[in-house]
Design a protein around this nucleic acid. Structure first.
Lengths: 235, 235
DNA sequence: CGAGTGTTTGATTTCTGTCAATGCTGGTGG
DNA sequence: CCACCAGCATTGACAGAAATCAAACACTCG
């Protein structure tokens, strides 16, 4: 467990926090912003729906699922988050978080007290701009998820899901060809608006078609153009 | 067409712009912010995906649909917007709008140049806080739409849709019992992830069940508890 | 090594989409 | 003012995709 004294200069999220990672004056101020790290064990909630809102979080390590609950107990995974992504923005509107965020593996976050972030946003234009951009990017991400759920078939959803994961790993300098799914088939299905059996069947069929190789949670993409075609994207 | 000189004091959106509508100093500053009004004829786009981002818009009168396009030409309605609601936030992330927004009837918006909004946000804490809240509220709204598309049956979607419209009309001091749908069955279906025939059938069945009365675009809710039950909400 | 969770696969059902025909309504122009 | 037209809505019959129910299998973690 790292202390609050850790510097943002060593944080892989500097590019998230600062518009320009070379902009030292900014990242120095980010040091004031990051209260510290918080480690979250697999299966444990970073926060729960209804908790009083006070912090935004930036994923440092590991991965998380965001789960939204219905009144009748049904729940849906509304997002997966990996390093560099922002958590907690759904709490700003009502001063209470609107969802549960649970670690899919042992993970950690940077803790950013929102009042400090507001303060810093007022002082440093670049920080303000970046906070707005992060919130807006969240909106765009959710819009894309809406399209996925609203207009796509099961095949298209699974293909798009794999390609999305691939590009996110690539953006983090990991292999876009082979990666481990952190989530179960059920969680994947919940996110994609499908049942776990459908996800499993679809992955199996993709394998038969030579598009991918699956073995449990390990996935390898063998045919990107083919998968893109299934997802009906223009490469 | 009103000019830029119009005052926010006479704008129905003051409660959106200012945290506290009585806070005159704030609303005076909002006058500087609102560049002016823009009228949008039925069927005309307020902005299109890819347009350079420069303004946020607050709906003054009328109603709008937000449409997101897929690469292959398919499109989905990702939201309906009425007075007091915020448009354009999806453009912040990339400096280009990510969707089309089209007026469903002759409508108007307040134009808020984003750079001015950023400036004012840095100067006035209350404005900053409110902008964050509006963006966050957008996120929560989209999360709810995700749940609708991800876990609900056709009946539940249509019931939830009617109840959502009802509460939005009520919040604007219109009758929550009877209102006119501004959107076609096809647009409704696109938003709900259903085909227009399914929407039509479901509405007809709800009417047979005595839950609502439909006549074309006119809807009257006869049995709120019943409709809530169909939507599987806790009143 | 065993228990329990997670995954795969199969058989069947159900819901929603698709295709098709008809009807309504509001706007336009003669 | 009325008739016509085009877009929108309703309804029916049928097909198809994904859910459900069910069983067996594979990991992984004590």
């Amino acid at each position: 467990m790292r202390g609050a004294a850790s510097s943002c200069k060593s944080c892989s999220l500097r590019t998230v926090c600062a518009v320009n990672p070379d902009e030292l004056s900014c990242s120095r101020q980010m040091d004031d912003l990051i209260l510290g790290y918080r480690h979250v064990k697999k299966g444990v909630a970073l926060y729960r729906a209804g908790d009083a809102f006070s912090n935004l979080y930036a994923v440092r390590t590991g991965s998380y699922k965001k789960v939204t609950l219905l009144a009748d107990g049904r729940e849906q995974v509304t997002g997966f988050y990996v390093s560099g992504e922002l958590l907690g923005a759904d709490g700003i509107a009502t001063d209470h978080y609107a969802s549960d965020v649970v670690a899919l593996e042992d993970s950690s976050v940077c803790v950013m007290p929102f009042d400090l972030l507001e303060l810093l946003s007022r002082e440093v234009k670049a920080v303000q701009h970046n906070v707005f951009r992060m919130l807006s990017a969240d909106l765009v991400r959710e819009s894309n998820a809406l399209i996925l759920l609203g207009t796509m078939t099961a095949d298209e959803r699974v293909a798009a899901f794999l390609l999305d994961l691939s590009s996110r790993w690539q953006a983090r300098a990991y292999s876009p060809n082979a990666f481990g799914l952190r989530m179960t088939r059920e969680e994947t299905g919940s996110f994609l608006g499908l049942k776990l059996e459908t996800v499993s069947r679809t992955l199996s069929r993709f394998q038969k078609q030579g598009l991918i190789k699956v073995r449990g949670k390990e996935v390898e993409i063998l045919d990107f153009p083919g998968l893109n075609q299934v997802a009906r994207r223009t490469v």
